[in-house]
Each structure stands twice: as C-alpha cells, then as structure tokens.
Design a protein around this nucleic acid. Structure first.
Lengths: 186, 186, 186, 186
DNA sequence: AATGAATGAGCTTTCATTCAT
DNA sequence: AATGAATGAAAGCTCATTCAT
C-alpha cells in the first residue's frame, strides 16, 4: 500500500529536514532538488514563489509532525508529568537519530531576516498552535487553565533553549532535563 | 580620547551585529564590508580564512560583551535574584533597541552546518565560559556550588529559548519572564 | 544548412583557442564567456565542474581536430614522407594564421600544476591516441611496426619542441624542419 | 663560507622553480613570497615592475644554470656524442629530482601571452645564447660549423619536446632518448 | 506536470600592486 | 631596505529564478 511519495511531498520532506539542519540561508535549492530527486524545473509548478513558498510549506509540515508527536505523547499518558516527559524523550530520540544536530524545525527554517514579516507571522501562528494544543492536553490531565498556560509557555521556551544547547554539546541531555525544569512545581 | 576604531575592530563589531541578526549564511561579505566602511581587499589581510575567521572573531567579541553585561549585573547586586533579574532586563533592553530581532550572538553566528566542528567547539567553549562565570557570581552571592550550577544551566538554557520566542513575538516579554522561571526555588 | 552552433559548442571552440594561446591559468572565464557570446550562468549547466571541465572538453575537441588533420594528410599521401610532410606543413599554416602563437593544444591547455593527475592522465591518453593513429598511417604506407613506432615517437616529440621554438621566433620555420629531422633515415 | 642568500636571491631562486613548474600565470606572488620567506612589501624594492621583473630575473637565472650544466657536460667530454649524452642525462636527473614535472625553465616562465614582446624577446635571446654555446662546444669537439649549427638546432628543439613528453608520462625516458635522435648521423 | 537549458546578479576569495611608516 | 596594512579589480563559482518546449 506504501505509495511512492509525490514530487511535491518529497520536496517538502527533504526541505524540512535540510532547513532544520542548516537554516534557511544555509540550504540551496539545488541541494533540496537533489535530495528530493526532483527535476530542476518542476519546483516552480508546485511552489510558484520558489524558495520562500517551499520553506513555509516545510515549516508547516514539520509543525504538524511535531503536533502529532505531542498528541501521541499525551494520548496514553497517565498524568501531566507523564505526558511532558514522554514528549521530551521522543524529541530527544529524534534529535539523536538526526546526527545530534536539529533544532526547532520552525525557527531554524523561518528565521530569515528581521524584515520578513510573512515568515515571522507564520512562526508566530505555529507556536500558538503548539501552545494551544499543549494547554488542551494539560487541562485534560487536570491542570487549571492558568497553570496549563504557564506550563505550556515554560515548556516551549525551555525546549527552544534545550535544542540549542543540545546541538552545541552534541548530546540530547539538555533536552532530557526539560521536564524537570518545567515541572518543578508539580 | 575616543579614537577611531581600527579597520579590524570595525569589521568585527559590524560582523557581530549582522551575524546576530541574520545568521552566518544570511549575511554577505559585501554587506559587512559596507557596514564597516572597509575596502574589499583589506578583510583578508586581517582574517586570512575570510568569512569563517571573521565569524569566529565576531562570536568571541560578542561573547566578551555578554560577559561584561553579566559581570556588571552582578557587581552591584544585593542578591542572586537581583543579579539574575538585572542581567535579564539588560538583555531585554538590548533586544528592544536592536529592532527586537537579535538572538544569542554566538549560536546565531556559529550555527552553520552539522559538520563544522570548529564552529561547534568554539560555541561550546563560549557557553562554558558563560556558565563558569555565572556559577562564580552565584556562589559569591551565597549559593551552594550545586545550586549555582543548576541555576547557571537553567538560566542559559532558558535564555536561549526566550530569545527565540521574543524574536517570534516581536517583544522582549519572554526574556523578562526568565528570572521568574529559573528562580522559582529561591 | 550551416546551423548556429550550440552554446556548449561555442564555449568549447573558443576555450580551445584561448587556452592554446595563453595557457590554462592565462585565460579567465569571463574572457571565454565573452568570446563565446555566452551568458555567465549557462557555463556551469554544461560544465558542472567549471573551468577544469571546460579545459578537458576543449583539449579533447582540439585533439580530435588534430587527428582529422593527420588523417587528411595521410589519406592522399603517396608515401610516408609525403604524409609527414603534408601534416607538418598544414600545422605550420595553422600556426601562421593564428598570430604565430599557438602551441600543442593539449599541453598548453592541460599543463596546470604538478599535482593535477586528472589533467595529466587526459594528456597522456590524447598523446597515445595521436601516436597510435600515426603508427597506423605509417604502417599503411609500408613501414614496419618497429619503424612506425620509432617514427611516431620522434615526430610528436619533435613537433612539441618545434611549436615552442616557432612561438619564440615568431616563425613557422622550425615546424617546417620537423619532417627533415624525423625522416633522416628514409 | 656558505652565506645565507639575500632576500633578492631567495626570491629569484624560488620564483624560477615555481614558474618552471606551474607557468607564469599559475604562480601567485603570495606563493613566491611565502616560498622565499620574504616579507610582503620588500619585493617592489628589488623588482620595481613586480611580477614581470621577477619572472625575467628568474628566467635569466635559470638560463645561466642551464648554461653551466651544458659547459660542465662538455668540459670533460671525449667527444661530441659524449658531451650531448652527458648533458641530456644531467637534465634527466634534474627532471627526476623535481617531482618529474619541470619543463624548459625559460618557456614555462616567459610564455605569458602572444602580445608580450618583452618576454618573447628575452626568450629568444636566451635560446640564442644556448645555441651559440652549443655550437662552440660542438666545433671544439671537431664538428664543422654547419654540422655544429644543425646539431644545436636539433638538440634544443628536441629537448623542448622531450620535456613536454616526459612531464606527460611522468618519466625522464623521453629526455634520455634525445641523444639518439639528434646524433643519428654521427 | 514536467523538463533541462538559460540567466545574470551575487557569492567568497585571490590578485598584483601601492601606500605610509 | 624593509614592513604590514590597504586597495579594488578581477578571479572562479553559486544563487534563486525563468524560459521554451
């Protein structure tokens, strides 16, 4: 049943991975096309605005993946603590199997320049989506609305920092310390 | 008494600023040369290895600046809480006067590609320098060695994330929440 | 029927001519692009490795031209002496109509540096191709295999030197003395 | 008694070697200065016209060396054949100890472009100097003036070609065949 | 939807040279 | 005689994009 992914899908998948590793300006179109095994000219059919369209699509794709990991982590969790911990350890594993060098798939992809408002807005929207989902999961595990919001904020901010530190140190340990840091009050 | 800075110094200063805003690959040599009012050919006299040498020098320069802000914040602080808070608010102000779009000056400058071990090592060294200084300040304000270490780790990791979030939101608020997050146990 | 040559063909032709006159390092890409009336970016579409790819293509193109001149010289020749003499005089004419400043199209193009093994191997292959063809023509005119080999060796070595001397003196006379030098035993 | 060579001498020696290996355009001033351990700014004191002056000095220096080898080869020679053979074998040895990649020190250094008349004239003068010396040695060994001239012409032309072929093949064998080729009539 | 050639602005870097000291 | 900083033109090459088919 496993179909060969379409050219468009391959482009998005590979772009997401590459941008996440080397940043928007660190990846060239040729590299993406090569990784996706896509012919040179076909890109602008799928993404009329070229690289920026592709980056946005890649960021949204990666954001959805992240959301799925979050949902899966909380689905079978017995507690808030359990859900957060599972989520962070899943991300730590993802980090390890990606050469210990991936960061937040969205900020790595969409931090392009101070003046790119389209990218900034998209990043903001995605972060809000993640925060909202986290709040939902936290309240479903018994947290108050206020506590859920505070936890979600702390979780995602700390995760951003943990990704940076993990890359620098070449170890997923910082990511694994996130639950302890954000759940101290529990 | 204020002397005109040397060409080399102007290059480092401007490069530090630009890399911090747009990342290593997001800044071209021409842009740096232009900002530093330096002629094209003179760069490779001071930095034989070109852009990468300049980026390393810029990162170390920015790292020292950060250290000075840290030292100044703790010098007149009455307590650990006071020092951390002053430090974060100084950074928040720095963020605001820089178009609300600067991140960690080191990771923005030296996150180039997974395989660049020289950059990764330099980043690691600078982070350690920051952590060591923070531990020193914390113990001098009465914290135990263990507590000082834990605080330093949490502070710098959370700061990394706060910078990201502040950029996304166009507001220094996330940076200002860092003290509360890392000092909850005090 | 004469079609406009393709961009690729124009690049190869002009590159062959320019390299032959000024050597690999003496010709810039801009000069070749200009001579071929080709836009800057198109070169790396046809020659992904840039200048070195183009030089190899140019050398092979020039080598084939040389082979055609050799074949034509021997085709209607009544004797070995006749073929060799016709060949050298054709080359002398070519030298004269090229500002009296062209050398061996292959060594001028591919003598780049001692460590460039790819260029050295290509040069070696082309020389062998010329030698083999010469041996074939010589035997077809009645020479023994051994004599044919000795003649081919002497011819091409002497020709190399004659080109050098002709350039220095600004006269095709040295080239015209080659038949006498290599056919003394006939 | 062995003095440290002057900066000027070191520049000429190293330039001669480098030009001979990589050609005039294949060697940069920085490379020469580095090889000669000479400070950047001092070159234009010794060679006001820069690279071209240095190349001319290097070519003349190498030409004199060649003349000394020629003289030494004929000084103790019992016959014309003996002198020519010794000379070629000395050159073959020189070729071998120089990574099997040196050519005529003069044409490699001074073949710059078709329009450089100063270089062309210098090359012509040096070749004439070599030819004259060879004629002198040949007549001193009993050859007639006419025979001596013919031999000198053949010797130097064949040598030029032999150097090319030796470089291509990475073997001094072609150089060693020169005596046989030019002395067939003896 | 797909293709490969074309495009020229832009990239980082190297060039031979000149300057003030 | 020597020095190292300065200089900008030019080097070879890559860029994201567009075009005709």
């Amino acid at each position: 049943m496993a179909q060969t992914p379409s050219t468009r899908d391959r482009l998005v998948t590979q772009a997401a991975l590459l941008f996440q590793r080397k940043g928007y300006h660190g990846v060239g179109m040729a590299e993406i096309l090569d990784a996706a095994q896509a012919p040179k000219g076909s890109l602008y059919h799928h993404f009329p605005n070229g690289k920026s369209d592709l980056a946005l699509a890649a960021a949204h794709f990666a954001a959805d993946q992240m959301l799925q990991i979050l949902d899966a982590s909380f689905k079978d969790a017995d507690s808030l603590r359990d859900g957060v911990t599972t989520f962070c350890y899943k991300l730590a594993k993802l980090f390890d199997i990606n050469d210990k060098w991936i960061g937040c798939p969205v900020s790595a992809t969409l931090f392009e320049s101070p003046t790119n408002t389209e990218f900034r807005q998209a990043t903001c929207d995605i972060f809000q989506m993640w925060l909202d989902a986290t709040v939902r999961h936290a309240t479903s595990k018994g947290a108050t609305e206020a506590k859920a919001r505070a936890l979600a904020d702390a979780l995602w901010m700390t995760l951003q920092g943990a990704w940076s530190l993990s890359r620098v140190r070449g170890s997923s340990d910082p990511i694994k310390t996130v639950p302890a840091l954000v759940l101290r009050d529990e």
